[in-house]
Write a protein that binds this DNA or RNA. Sequence first.
DNA 1: TAGGCCATCTGGTCCT
DNA 2: AGGACCAGATGGCCTA
Length: 222
Amino acid sequence: MAELKSLSGDAYLELSHGYAAAGLAYGAARGPEAARGYGMPCTGGDLPAASAPRAPAAAAESSGEQSGDEDDAFERRRRRRGPGGAADGRRRPREQRSLRLSINARERRRMHDLNDALDGLRAVIPYAHSPSVRKLSKIATLLLAKNYILMQAQALDEMRRLVAYLNHGQGLAAPVAAAPLTPFGQAAVYPFSASAALPCPDKCAAFSGTPSALCKHCNEKP
DNA sequence: TAGGCCATCTGGTCCT
DNA sequence: AGGACCAGATGGCCTA
């Protein structure tokens, strides 16, 4: 995706703008409940555990809670597959159906957990949180989070360089003099950090090899 | 109306 | 055997 390939300093904001602004008034039209997205459109949305935010202890979804619509859907699919079905032909139909429903419920629960985690991620990504703004899609959430992490890592790197620069009079601190590290211990691979800038006339560029946005010399145009 | 996004169902695969 | 995970299919809702 193009957003990921361009990791310029504004990549995060560009992505945020592109995805978040695309659906203004979406939330207002759909309503916050609908925007949460657990409406279960396939089955008419009348499953209690699916149409409302799931209570932590209310994971007691069982096959007994399936709606009549789901029964119909099951029957339709069963007829399409023919007698015996594709799963386990040795099971009696009732037993087989009960097993299928419990598997479905488990999968539903798993996806709800995944969506809860995505909601948690959305909550900590800085973007326009507003009832009138459509919530981030799943893919946008992941891409935005990735770029945000990269941005934070870059900022941390800049701060480290600044600290090293300020402490330069007392000698070079070995850990900082080495290749700049991300919080995860990997070498920084930001394509936007150094290449375009000229060497700093001061000591920061000579020191780290990478001009710093926090250094006034690095930002001076020739 | 087409396309995007989503929830759900389903069968397959892997792991415990 | 049962559960977790995954990907494909399906159908609904919404926006441009």
